[in-house]
């Protein structure tokens, strides 16, 4: 009997896994639908801090997830409270409309003169925040899509 060669074995495992664990149809459908959300020209705020990505350092009793997004000198700081609410702050402070969207729904709130804002609801994932800037005629800032 000939032993199965490495490449042949990898090929077999691949075929076996694709048989028992194929990409589900709803996942492919979701991926195709994601195209409608492409934002070619918008300003995209990237994650510059994520408490979940910090493996070292002091982990306090407070387990709330904290994230900071940044683009063009503007920071959007958010914290997930009780796993179900979102509070945040714009730096520098800006009183404006902020929306939270997933692929089904969009909810909106206002930031105050100190840039503070909150959402009483955290929409099912993935979600993104949008900071609207109609007052200075600039395009809105989107955060990248997130699983909070």
């Amino acid at each position: 009997m000939n032993p199965i060669h490495d490449d042949e074995l990898v090929d077999l495992v691949g075929r076996a896994l694709r048989t028992v664990d194929p990409v589900p149809e709803h996942v492919l459908d979701g991926a195709m639908a994601a195209w409608t959300w492409r934002t070619i020209d918008a300003e995209l705020a990237q994650i510059v801090f994520d408490s979940a990505a910090e493996l070292t350092g002091v982990r306090s009793e407070v387990m709330e997830r904290q994230l900071t997004f940044q683009v063009g000198g503007i920071e959007i700081e958010v914290m997930v409270v009780d796993g179900s609410r979102l509070v945040g702050q714009l730096v520098p402070a800006m009183a404006t409309t902020i929306t939270q969207a997933n692929e089904e729904r969009t909810i909106s709130t206002r930031s105050d003169h100190l840039g503070r804002f909150s959402f009483d609801e955290l929409l099912p994932h993935p979600v993104r925040l949008t900071v609207h800037r109609p007052h200075d005629g600039r395009p809105p800032i989107h955060t990248v899509w997130m699983v909070f």
Binding site: P24, V27, G30, A31, A34, H125, P126, W145, M146, V147
Partner: peptide
Amino acid sequence: DDVVQTVWLRLAEHC
């Protein structure tokens, strides 16, 4: 599912 969908949304906005 959430992770995979996030990746495709990221690609859509990043492509």
